[in-house]
Design a protein around this nucleic acid. Structure first.
Lengths: 337, 337
DNA sequence: AAAATCAAGGAAAACGTTTTCCTTAAGCCC
DNA sequence: GGGCTTAAGGAAAACGTTTTCCTTGATTTT
């Protein structure tokens, strides 16, 4: 006798119910027209009595696919990515899928290592939070394993499954917001343009400013070579402060960049300019009441991802979710009063 | 011919190398004295040529254990938990293990559901980030699957594997720090005392204050029934503000609670009291320069967890990692000047 | 009333590994 | 040179499922 609940096999259930293991399997998996109501009930109660749950290894072996879904995040230290992961986990679980979470540190080699590992795990699907191009990704593209690109589109062409916001529209709205708020000279601080999200945002801001008559050359664009967004913001703000003429508003392509810039301005002692970021998080209300930010509903990304996986091939291959500009004008900005 | 890299089986490798699958398995797994140098080389090059990696389902089935390690976090929205998860992922990966991350929302029923699922997955080990007591946990305790309790100790007795800081010492240090900084009346805001970490911190603070001659009754202790730490801090600070006499320092059992309290004070308009929290994160330097906090090296927790799993049964069953009080006195506190 | 469908369920194959036995040949010790 | 041990490697079992066949009655169709 095996210990009761733990790891009872299909054989034990079959024996207890007085049927073959085939029947148990069919009842558990809900195959129609293969068991009488009476048999079904007997099997069900045996399953409950033994607390049986099919061993995933056996199932995966036979079905040649596991219930694992890999989420490869570029940087888990980024609260936005963590939020997406948390949301994905819930949505996957609801479908009986299990999330495997990995941190690629935005490095192609590591991303490839994980892709290979997940192939060995026979992962049901791959979710890439901010993908980078890599050999293995190229090899798997078009293969049988669905790949969902979140935030950043597929780095090679925009064909793949995608979840994200309309970055161009958001960029325009941010630009217009700054102008409407009275800003005359505007700066942009951005991260790596290899990210489609970043490049789309930057381009949209510039175009919107140009369309409103702001001379192209008067827009200051800063960036820094660093994969830490905080550092990018800090160093870029430093350079903005070194300029002869100050700017009225700084548009950052992520909240972390804005945090970095804000710190630099605070250290400087003066009143920081209007700061705008992207991502937003409920935490901003608490710790960054000075930051206007494009709220991206990461808590809904999980469902969007899963629905994309469930959809048939003819459904639209992208879920563009709505964003919302959260205007904040809290303590820190007018600290100088 | 199967498509080259993808999912080649051990049979293909054996055929290419001209050996049996048994030999391939042994070479891949590094079994000594079972293959000549020449054979080993031939197998290795076949493995490389086909980009072979053992299917984990087959392996798990045979070995009756997978390479999955489950990390069950009480709340992924908490940056501290996310940081631990990120660190665990790296450490596990280094040992060829794969992290499965789940969010139990601090609910026993959900924790049990995950525990069952992970048993079906034949998880190699279970890591509980802030465990709650639950029937399934009780059933698995003492079973073959190692369980590591992180931050909170095993809710039923302190026998289990544990990674955390010396909360009593940290609590004392925080209390002394406040007194040394000149605080006369001190408040404590804490979360659920079901967490051993929280209760140990609160007790240590109170004892240290008493030892320094602060009358027991003069210490204000606040809390709120909520699983959102931000809300606990906010609501508790509200009550502190309603008191006739203000406090000089508020010790919070987590940074999130401190964030919540800070917001309430800022809304009030006056200068917030000295605020102290627990957890800390690199982000605090950027966004909460007003928060003194006990820095817990979550980035090292992954290694501590893994070392606990690797240790034999006679090694000490706990890893108490060093903490450090990060004293900050940035802009927001002396904003009133 | 023969033919055809269909529900119910069992036996056994298949999935891809690891590992236990075996076998063979070589080396070593006396 | 006979008994050891040992390296090298193959055949086959075992792991726990799902699923393909197959069989047997019962019911429906023609």
């Amino acid at each position: 006798m095996t210990r009761s609940g733990a790891g009872s096999s299909i054989k034990a259930v079959a024996a207890l119910a007085g049927v073959s293991i085939a029947t148990v399997s069919r009842v558990v998996n809900g195959v129609a027209n293969k068991a009488s109501a009476e048999t079904t009930a007997r099997v069900r109660s045996a399953v409950a009595a033994l607390d049986y749950r099919p061993a995933s290894a056996g199932r995966a072996l036979r079905q040649r696919t596991s219930r694992l879904v890999a989420v490869l995040a570029a940087n888990l230290a980024n609260p936005a990515m963590a939020a997406i992961a948390a949301s994905a986990e819930i949505a996957l679980r609801k479908r009986g899928l299990v999330m495997v979470l990995c941190d690629t540190h935005d490095r192609p080699a590591l991303q490839d290592e994980y892709l290979k590992e997940m192939q060995a795990q026979q992962a049901r699907a791959i979710v890439l939070l901010a993908a980078v191009e890599s050999p293995m990704l190229a090899a798997m593209r078009g293969g049988p394993t669905p790949i969902v690109f979140v935030n950043r589109r597929d780095p090679a062409g925009s064909a793949g499954l995608h979840v994200g916001i309309d970055n161009a529209a958001a960029g325009r709205e941010v630009a217009v917001h700054c102008l409407d708020a009275g800003a005359r000279t505007i700066a942009i601080i951005h991260g790596s343009l290899a990210s489609s999200a970043t490049s789309e945002r930057v381009r949209a801001v510039r175009e919107a400013l140009a369309a409103r008559g702001v001379p192209h050359a008067s827009v200051v664009v800063e960036t820094a070579e660093d994969d830490d967004h905080l550092a990018i913001g800090y160093r870029s703000a430093k350079r903005l402060l070194e300029r002869s003429s100050p700017v009225d508003a700084v548009i950052c392509t992520s909240d972390l960049i804005a945090f970095g810039a804000h710190r630099r301005y605070v250290e400087d002692g003066g009143a920081p300019p209007r700061l705008v970021g992207f991502d937003d998080s409920p935490l901003n209300d608490w710790i960054a009441p000075w930051l206007t930010s494009v709220r991206i509903p990461y808590e809904n990304y999980g469902e969007a991802i899963v629905s994309l996986l469930a959809a048939d091939d003819r459904a639209p291959a992208a879920r563009i979710v709505p964003y919302r500009l959260m205007v904040r004008d809290g303590p820190s900005r007018n600290r100088g009063r």
